[in-house]
Simulated assay, not measured.
Amino acid sequence: MIELPPSEVLDVGRRAFLRIGTPADIADRVVGDLVANEVVGVRSHGILRLTDYLQDAAAGLLDVAARPAVTAPGGAVRVVDGQGGFGVLAADAVTANLCELLTVHPVCAVALTNAGHLGRLSAIGTAVARHGGAVLGFVNYLGAGQRVVPWQGEDGRLCTNPLLISVPAEPDPFVLDMSTSTVSEGRIRQHWLDGTTVPGGWLVDAAGAEVTDPDRLYSDPPTAFMTPLGGDHGYKGFALGVAVELLAGVISGAGYVRADTDRRGNGGLFIGISPALAVRAGDEVLREVGAVRSHLEASSPAVHWPGSGRTSGTDTIRLSQRRWRTLLAHADGKDPL
């Protein structure tokens, strides 16, 4: 492993995207988001995704120059079409439209279709909460990435299907951004890239036995599958995963899991809620949410308010030498090692 300054990783990532035709402003936004995630310790949505995006672009699965398109089928409803481009741009469009709609509607909805990998949903929730609104968000993978085994199933049938809930609060909004699988796929991917085993309970085989070798998740065909959230009560996580699939994939019209799917990327449904829905003043909501937080945190100094605690935790980014050489090769127009 080597340690690199974020500025150097930013430069190399930007050059790699520019070389394949990415507009400069898009390259800056995408790489900046990945580096920011890495710096705060969310490696599952950090630089490991940079290589994924480059590979998707080379395979024709990602349009590096596409920008989202927005339509308005109803007064309080918008549809964001990612146009097959970078997910972070689609997430920005979802955020902007939720904030705009909430200025005039107590409840609104934004559907998402045809977007690349969104990254951290918490960015959407935090921004809307700071704007004064609450969000319920549901995201699927358009039928691809079926690595999560159903409760008592024998193979992968769902994606990790994350959900988002955010509520305004001070100084930190309440933000829940979680997969309905035991862990996000990116956390397992990180172990796989680092050459380390995963903890028990993250993966199982077709018979339900624990698997700790992440190679088995990425073999062709896979011989291990991700578990639904809940451990011995995984039927709860499975039910949540199905609910997200239906809301993000079916209700939104984005696409859903099935045997013959050839689609990939993110679809979703985001519901914005203003305190005006219940004729509440914003400062009254903030005061009462603060009271809830104080009551919970009085239990123990170890209690963590969801959405707080993510601060700049590192001045360097740790990568394996092999991954760094691969990124340099992309940036310099050479064949990746």
Rank of each mutant, 00 (worst) to 15 (best):
L62E: 12
S181M: 10
L246H: 03
F17W: 13
T223E: 11
V257D: 04
A254L: 09
E210K: 07
G21K: 13
V107G: 00
R15Q: 15
D52V: 00
R78W: 10
D205W: 06
G46P: 00
S7D: 15
V303Q: 05
A96L: 07
R29D: 15
G307L: 02
Q321R: 02
H105F: 15
G231P: 06
G200N: 04
L163K: 01
L4D: 05
A206T: 12
G74M: 14
A111F: 14
G268I: 10
A209G: 12
L102A: 03
G290K: 07
D260L: 09
R264P: 02
R78A: 15
F270E: 11
N140T: 06
G249T: 08
G313F: 05
R322E: 01
D177E: 04
G307W: 02
G237T: 02
P23D: 14
T261E: 03
V40H: 04
V149I: 14
D11G: 08
A278R: 09
G116S: 08
A243M: 15
L118K: 04
D220V: 13
A259H: 14
V257W: 01
L118R: 02
D92F: 00
V198I: 13
S252G: 08
R19K: 12
V198P: 12
D260W: 03
E100W: 07
L50C: 11
I188H: 01
G195M: 04
D177T: 15
T113K: 12
L163S: 05
A36F: 12
D260Q: 13
V292T: 01
F17T: 10
H117W: 05
T316P: 01
D52H: 07
R258C: 09
L203V: 01
A65W: 11
R147P: 03
L112R: 02
V88E: 00
V289M: 09
A207V: 13
R120E: 02
T326E: 03
A91M: 07
I165N: 12
I2C: 11
A331H: 07
A66F: 07
N114E: 13
K236Q: 08
D177G: 14
V104A: 09
L121R: 02
T160W: 01
F174C: 13
T227Y: 01
L89D: 01
S300I: 00
A276S: 14
L48P: 06
F138W: 06
G307R: 00
H117P: 02
I124C: 14
G87T: 08
G231L: 10
A24S: 15
D33L: 10
Q83N: 08
I251V: 10
G272P: 04
H131M: 02
D92T: 01
L4W: 03
M1C: 01
H295C: 04
G32K: 14
E297A: 05
T227C: 12
A291S: 13
R263M: 11
V211W: 08
V39F: 06
S274Y: 03
L34G: 11
P228E: 00
V292N: 05
A69P: 02
L98W: 06
C99L: 09
S179Q: 03
T113R: 15
R157L: 03
A224V: 11
V279P: 00
D213S: 11
V139M: 11
I271N: 09
L217T: 06
H45P: 01
L54M: 10
